[in-house]
Design a protein around this nucleic acid. Structure first.
Lengths: 269, 269
DNA sequence: CATTGTGTTCCTATAATCGGAACACCTTTT
DNA sequence: AAAAGGTGTTCCGATTATAGGAACACAATG
């Protein structure tokens, strides 16, 4: 009598992890029982198991995400090709621009931050760290990703309800489509306070061997620092760095002549 | 008839995650079934649930750790006080030294890397990234942590079997105790190829408000670059940065006069 | 010293899990 | 073209872990 497939118990445990992750204040057992709709005792058993695995920690009766998850998730980060190839360029961009440099991967209707490097400038966008999420239709890097997804996927995403995170978040599909065309034309996307309030970011896409978009990098900071001239300057740096990372990821740039053996271009079916 | 407490199903799911994490090559269903000792169908159901949550991904019939875990684990990283306060100093150290700077937290008989910043120098210690583990008795930062744990904990750790990761890993408790005394005296620890082959690292501990060790930072690179003079120079930088981070974490340094209201020093029981 | 908040244990009916067997699908080999 | 070996997947009755109310333990608080 288990309609869907999959382990219900594990699903419950995972939903607890997400509840803990999203809670603003570390929740207690009772909070989680209410939030999840499960009885206290069921929560308790699941939490204990998660705690034994260090996936959560208990501090003074409050639960929080534990380092055990960092240990496991590290494997996802460490083996991520995009992140490996981007690492050096991120640090370099941070040094040259002084601002926050981020690396995002597509993640459904959101973009997931998988790396970040900070420059010297003391005021930073807080909140979006490794593991942080932005709507895929807002912010420089996420929008750069969205703009280069397959047309079909784009339409699927635009069809769903679009999240709003600041007063400037655009959600009109028509406007977004027009902007995407611009982004594809010029090679970078500018997020102007539409993802994080008062933060401007310039993002550029990174492509893989098959020409698919693997993710995007962005450089961003407080809007006061991002006049037209600086946006242009930063865009140049970001686009160049992104192209370099793409190349390392196996992407044959448009300027590169196509391979002589056209037959070999197809990949394992 | 469930001897221990806790959810067995969730335990199984977690053990699968660890198996996937530790596998050198992305395993397939059959590999996991064998490795975990569970029947194929049970593995399959658990894996499917984990996949739905994006905790794992499937690429061509092989399983690997997925970005969903990064999303959740990000909460552990983002809210980690130590990491927040260290971030800036790590980048700065990387810039000044050119080498790899890491931040470790105590993690049982190991130390867990929770942040890393890379300098300019092109040759790096690979392998230890965010989420990476080193034995707590080897390597600059881990040993700095170990040296400042409560005496009782130290003895517990020394009693257990001590991992060996390179030809220079020291496992004699007596020798380790002597080295720890040195480390406590001089304020830093030098790991000389004892954690990662051919890599030297200088680590210094970070303390919290109650004087407990929260973790350690280290600067390290290939041994050719770490002659006596440079070790000394790096040690100075590392110790200073660690002290600064400690201060930000609420640690009252020994030179700081004790608070006038001695009664307030006790914390929530 | 009652009250309200934590987490924890106990216990049996219930419902999810287990897991062998059979199937579907794709390569590679014969 | 057929066989062999590799994936993952579905099916379904027996087994067994889970569910979850009630009661308890232990703080902190009023």
């Amino acid at each position: 009598m288990n309609g869907m497939d999959g382990s219900l118990t594990v699903q419950k445990a995972i939903s607890l992890l997400h509840l803990i992750r999203m809670a603003k204040l570390d929740p207690a057992l009772a909070d989680l029982a209410v939030a999840s709709g499960m009885p206290k005792t069921v929560c308790h058993r699941l939490l204990r198991t998660l705690q034994e695995a260090r996936f959560i920690e208990r501090i003074g009766g409050r639960y929080r995400i534990g380092l055990g998850l960092v240990e496991v998730a590290g494997a996802a980060l460490g083996r991520n090709e995009l992140r490996q190839h981007a690492s050096r360029r991120l640090a370099e961009l941070a040094r040259r621009t002084g601002d926050a440099v981020m690396l995002f991967a597509p993640y459904g209707m959101q973009a997931l931050c998988i790396d970040r490097a900070d420059g010297d400038f003391p005021i930073k966008a807080a909140g979006v760290e490794i593991g942080g999420l932005l709507p895929i239709h807002a912010g420089g890097a996420p929008f750069a990703i969205l703009s280069h997804l397959p047309a079909e996927e784009i339409e699927q995403l635009l069809a769903g309800p679009l999240a709003v995170t600041t007063s400037r978040t655009e959600t009109d599909p028509a406007v977004l489509r027009a902007r995407m065309a611009e982004v594809r034309a010029c090679g970078f996307a500018v997020g102007d306070g539409d993802a994080i309030e008062f933060i401007v970011a310039v993002g550029a896409p990174v492509f893989g061997a098959e020409g698919q978009v693997l993710g995007a990098i962005s450089v961003g900071g407080i809007e006061q620092r991002y006049g037209a001239a600086r946006r242009q300057e930063i865009a140049g740096l970001v686009v160049e760095a992104a192209a370099d990372i793409s190349a390392r990821c196996g992407h044959a740039r448009s300027m590169t002549p196509p391979e002589p053996h056209a037959e070999r271009r197809r990949r394992s079916g």
